[in-house]
Simulated assay, not measured.
Amino acid sequence: MFLHQKHLLKHSVFMLFFSAFLVGCQSTPNTKNMQAKVETRTTKERPLNVVKVSTDGVQDIQWTLTEIRSKKALYFKQFPTLKLNSSSRRVTGHTGCNAIYGTYQYDLSKRTIDLNVKAGFQSCDGALAQEADLASALQDVVRFELKSKQLWFYDRQGNIVIKAKSS
């Protein structure tokens, strides 16, 4: 019995050293093979992701807000922006201080739009008044008009609540 245990121990030690040898060989980089792999990766072409872009002149355009409730839009961390994504019907943008996000319903033929927008909660010195005006203006928007490279948003009374220009 003792001889059988001794044989098993020798066999186990041999397997341990052999395994360590194999692992060591595998972890030693072969720079010639690595170079070939790098070259292969850089020569492969990736398929193009086709992104649907609206041609209506309103959606899929980054709009920089120039006026909010007849007041000049101010720069804080950046100028306020708005973008309507035609494929997802999502609104993204910036108040100047916080990110804007939400959804929208849109009818180009009637020039109507319903925005459901929220903003982040970061505080910027002096930005609170503009953010409050922008938040209420976005909720009041019911109609839009495209004039050259400008987009105007109107409330129910026909007042211009937001003016924007394409970026």
Rank of each mutant, 00 (worst) to 15 (best):
M1N: 05
L3M: 07
K6A: 14
H7Q: 14
H7A: 13
H7P: 01
H7G: 02
L9S: 08
K10G: 05
L16C: 04
F17S: 04
F17K: 02
F17E: 05
S19L: 15
F21M: 13
G24A: 09
C25K: 04
Q26H: 07
T31K: 04
K32R: 05
K32T: 14
M34L: 15
Q35N: 12
K37G: 10
V38W: 02
E39I: 08
R41K: 09
T43N: 07
K44S: 10
K44L: 15
R46F: 11
R46D: 13
P47H: 04
P47C: 06
K52A: 12
K52S: 11
K52I: 13
G57R: 11
V58G: 05
D60R: 05
D60T: 06
I61L: 14
E67R: 07
E67I: 07
I68W: 00
R69C: 03
S70I: 04
K72H: 03
A73G: 03
Y75T: 12
F76L: 11
F76E: 08
K77N: 12
F79M: 14
T81L: 11
K83W: 00
L84Y: 00
L84D: 07
S87E: 15
S87M: 06
R89M: 09
R90D: 15
T92P: 02
G93H: 02
G93Q: 08
G93D: 09
A99G: 10
I100Q: 05
Y101W: 08
G102N: 13
G102V: 04
T103P: 03
T103H: 09
Q105G: 05
Y106N: 08
L108R: 09
S109R: 06
K110V: 02
R111Y: 02
D114E: 15
G120R: 07
F121H: 03
Q122D: 09
S123I: 10
C124S: 08
D125H: 04
G126D: 15
G126N: 13
A127Q: 10
A127T: 06
D133W: 12
D133A: 12
L134W: 00
A135Y: 06
A137D: 11
D140W: 01
V142T: 12
V142P: 00
R143M: 11
L146E: 07
L146S: 10
L146N: 10
K149W: 02
L151G: 00
W152F: 10
Y154L: 10
R156V: 01
G158F: 07
I160S: 07
I160N: 07
K165E: 15
S166F: 00
S167T: 15
